[in-house]
Design a protein around this nucleic acid. Structure first.
Lengths: 197, 197
DNA sequence: TTTTATTGATTGATCAGTCAATCAAAAATA
DNA sequence: TATTTTTGATTGACTGATCAATCAATAAAA
């Protein structure tokens, strides 16, 4: 089996496996053995490539973040008006794969971890800021700066809140319902500033 | 020392200690020894009274929930108009002690735990439903039923979202800012339904 | 004396992390 | 081309630490 060039393959497989195990378990208290087993390698190999469990977990959250960023960039490219761009941002956050129970569980686990790990916290702060500033950029074109800031703050909070509420699987709020709730918030918050009507 | 009637005293001390340790650590992966130490007793005593770590944790979240419910009941008693009651609900959720970093960390930890523990999940679902139905009751008096449902959903999500965003301590959003953001959401969502203007 | 409160000592399980050894491909050499 | 050397990939077995849970023993009240 020892073919050369396995490193990137194994790293990817281990990060995928970590995400999958974390999603299933809904917690970061997963063992290296379990992750390695799902990736089809030995626990020792996971340590070989990542050095420690913490590093593997950090790489895993970076992966999650990168994916969301890439999706955002792609979606924003397809939208032209400020209002369409706002809708695109909302849609990306509630995309099917983002809204899958395992993905939500993983994000939640990382939020909890951020209370202990400074590095994890930094990554999540990056996410929070990015969401806020993406919204802000387009809102500024639709209303005064101070209103834009408030609406961005509110919309970001609503998105995160719909997300966390979804994690309880209590009121099976659908993707569409979440999107339209956020859309309506932005629309009615913008209403007083719209030129027409 | 063995004075009779210590059980309720110890139970309370242990639950308080658990909450405190969880808040500090920002995680449920805390040891019984640590909790017991903070409560000033031996780990064995904690097991004696609670049977297991899981039970102690469950009692701890029940305590958190009961506290929030009691505060809500008290606040609602002081408000008379529907709109004032809505404000009261919002204010309770952003109360100083609820918004303290350790409390937020504890809630977050329990949300993560809810992915694994059915019992923990049930408790959080109760919280989510209560918030929603408290809001709903008064909203129904201010707008049509379908709009009330949507606004309740949105406001609950915004509250939870502001909460989780606060946990990152990135944009030091103040209590007042969070309250007014939620108030504004409700006001502007209600605007189209208001009799005047 | 019986009951309640309390603990120290111990056990058994779980895990992250280490390490020496193996195996096979690739590169170097003959 | 054939042979040897080097190197990357991989693992099984092990270690040390941590921790939940148990239990027998003690001490003080009732």
């Amino acid at each position: 089996m020892p073919k050369v060039g396995m490193e990137p393959v194994r790293r990817k497989a281990l990060v995928d496996a970590a995400l999958s195990v974390i999603g299933d378990r809904g917690s970061l208290t997963v063992t290296m053995s379990e992750i390695a087993r799902r990736a089809g390698v030995s626990p020792a190999l996971a340590h070989h490539y990542f050095g420690s469990k913490d590093r593997l977990l950090i790489e895993t959250i970076r992966f999650l973040l990168r994916q969301l960023r890439d999706d955002s960039v792609k979606a924003l490219k397809r939208a032209d008006t400020p209002r369409a761009r706002l809708s695109a941002i909302i849609r990306v956050n509630f995309q099917a794969d983002q809204f899958a129970p395992e993905t939500i569980a993983a994000w939640l686990a990382f939020y909890a971890e951020a209370q202990r790990s400074e590095e994890t916290r930094r990554f999540l702060v990056i996410y929070a800021r990015r969401l806020r500033s993406n919204l802000l950029a387009d809102l500024r074109r639709l209303c005064p700066a101070d209103a834009a800031e408030r609406i961005a703050e509110g919309a970001a909070a609503m998105i995160d809140g719909l997300y966390i509420r979804q994690s309880l699987r209590s009121v099976p709020s659908s993707i569409e319902a979440s999107i339209s709730l956020t859309e309506d918030y932005i629309s009615s918050a913008l209403a007083p500033h719209s030129k027409e009507d």
